[in-house]
C-alpha cells in the first residue's frame, strides 16, 4: 500500500511561512533571500529607503583607496551600519587572485568580517569571471578562513568546483553585471542547481526586473543578489519592494511545486454532468 516517496529536495509544504525558511550562509541565518548592493542610487537616503523596502539584511560594499582629496561627510558604510544591516564586502575590480586575496584581507581588517563576495573578472567589457583566477582565489581565501560567496559564470563545472572546495555560497550570473538582461540561460542554471545540492546558490548579476528574480527562485535558487535593477530603476524604493515580493513569490512557488508543463489542454472543470450530455 505504501509507496516510496519520490525524491524531492524541496522543503516540505509546512515551510510556507517565510519566517521558518531562513537562508544559511557560513553558519549565519538570514530571513531575507535578497542581498542588495549599495551603489548607484540617486542619493544616500534613497539607498537607505530602498534597502529597507527590499528587506535585505546583507548589503554589499566595495573596497577602495581612501579619497584624500574629498573625504565623504558621512560614508555609505556608516549609513549602512547605522541601519543595522550586515556588510558584505566585495572584490570588485580585481583581475587576479593575488589582487582579490589582498582586497579580501583588507576588507576583513577594515570591516571585521570574514564574509567576502569574491569577484575576479577577466575584462571590463563583459565583467565575466576569470575562472582560473577565481578558483585560485577562492581556494586561498577558504584556506585563510574566509566565508566566500563566489561570483561565477553560469557554468555547471565551475560552480560545482567552487562548491566542492568549500565556498559558503556559489553565485552564478543570470546575465552580465548591470546588463538587466535577466536569466539568459535558465537551462544552465537548472543544471547548476542539480549538480550543486549542498551549497547555497544565489543568482548574482543581470537581474533587470521582478520577474527575473522570481524565475531564478522558481529554479530552486536560494537567493538573489542585485544592485542596478533597484538603484537605477525610475523609482528605486518601489522596485526594491517589488524585488522583495518577487523573491518571496518565487521561493513559495518553488516550494509549492509547479504543475508539469503540457502542450495540450487539460480541462479544469469536470466533464461529468455537462448540460446536453
Amino acid at each position: 500500500m505504501s509507496e516510496a516517496a519520490p525524491t524531492d529536495t524541496r522543503p516540505t509544504a509546512s515551510t510556507r511561512d517565510a519566517s521558518d525558511d531562513a537562508l544559511t550562509i557560513g553558519g549565519e541565518t538570514y530571513s531575507s533571500r535578497l542581498l542588495i548592493g549599495s551603489s548607484a542610487y540617486p542619493n544616500p537616503q534613497i539607498m537607505l529607503d530602498a534597502i529597507d523596502a527590499s528587506g535585505a539584511e546583507l548589503v554589499t560594499v566595495a573596497i577602495r583607496r581612501v579619497n584624500v582629496e574629498s573625504p565623504a561627510p558621512e560614508s555609505h558604510l556608516d549609513l549602512i551600519r547605522k541601519g543595522g544591516y550586515r556588510v558584505l564586502p566585495n572584490t570588485a575590480g580585481c583581475y587576479t587572485a593575488r589582487e582579490a586575496v589582498l582586497v579580501a584581507q583588507l576588507a576583513r581588517e577594515a570591516l571585521d568580517t570574514d564574509l567576502i563576495k569574491l569577484e575576479v573578472i577577466g575584462d571590463d567589457e563583459t565583467l565575466m569571471p576569470d575562472v582560473e583566477q577565481l578558483l585560485k582565489a577562492a581556494k586561498e581565501l577558504i584556506d585563510d578562513g574566509f566565508t566566500v560567496l563566489a561570483y561565477a559564470n553560469d557554468d555547471p563545472i565551475t560552480c560545482r568546483k567552487l562548491a566542492d572546495m568549500g565556498c559558503a555560497a556559489v553565485m552564478p550570473l543570470g546575465s552580465p553585471i548591470g546588463s538587466g538582461m535577466g536569466i539568459v540561460n535558465p537551462y544552465n542554471l537548472r543544471i547548476i542547481r542539480e549538480v550543486v545540492t549542498d551549497t547555497p546558490l544565489i543568482v548574482d548579476a543581470g537581474i533587470g526586473t521582478a520577474s527575473d528574480a522570481t524565475i531564478a527562485m522558481e529554479l530552486g535558487y536560494d537567493g538573489i543578489l542585485l544592485n542596478t535593477a533597484i538603484a537605477e530603476a525610475q523609482h528605486p524604493v518601489a522596485m526594491a519592494k517589488a524585488m522583495r515580493l518577487a523573491v518571496e513569490s518565487g521561493r513559495l512557488a518553488y516550494q509549492a511545486g509547479r504543475v508539469p508543463e503540457r502542450i495540450y489542454a487539460k480541462a479544469s472543470s469536470s466533464m461529468e454532468g455537462r448540460v446536453g450530455q
Binding site: 549599495s38 548607484a40 560614508s75 558604510l77 583588507l106
Partner: peptide
C-alpha cells in the same frame, strides 16, 4: 593589523595602501 599601526615605520620603496569601504554592488 590595526593594533600594530603605531609600531610601524616606513622605509625606502614601501608601497602603502590605505582603503575603506565605499558603495558597491
Amino acid at each position: 593589523r590595526r593594533q600594530d599601526w603605531s609600531d610601524v615605520t616606513l622605509a625606502e620603496g614601501d608601497t602603502v595602501e590605505v582603503i575603506t569601504a565605499q558603495q558597491g554592488g
